[in-house]
Amino acid sequence: MEIDVKHLEALAKVQLSADEEQVMEKDLRSILEHVKRLFELDVNDVPPTFGSGDIFGVDLDEDIPREGLKRDLILVGAPSIHDVFFKVPRESGASRDEEGKDRS
């Protein structure tokens, strides 16, 4: 079983230290080993269940505007703002591989 922890970190945007990566790989490996029992069952003809509900067909709401949240209320909890905008650092032009090298 190939578990590429670095690839998963990049997909999930979760940075781990080298030590954490090792533990993570070990943990994932043992969980997936346990989960392997699912391969015992032949389920190709069984339809999947994606939800638990008894709902047939999602309810559709009428197209009538309603009051949302006051801007001050949402900006006050933001990690960083500029004027009336949420502020985030820019994208870097560097590729992911280069970024990886910077990691401690």
């Binding site: 505007p65 309603r66 949302g68 949240l69 801007r71 949402i74 900006l75 905008f85």
Partner: peptide
Amino acid sequence: CRCSTRFGDPPNTNVC
């Protein structure tokens, strides 16, 4: 959601 889709409103005002 039922926030307005109006174009050109002040930033971050049609949100919930």
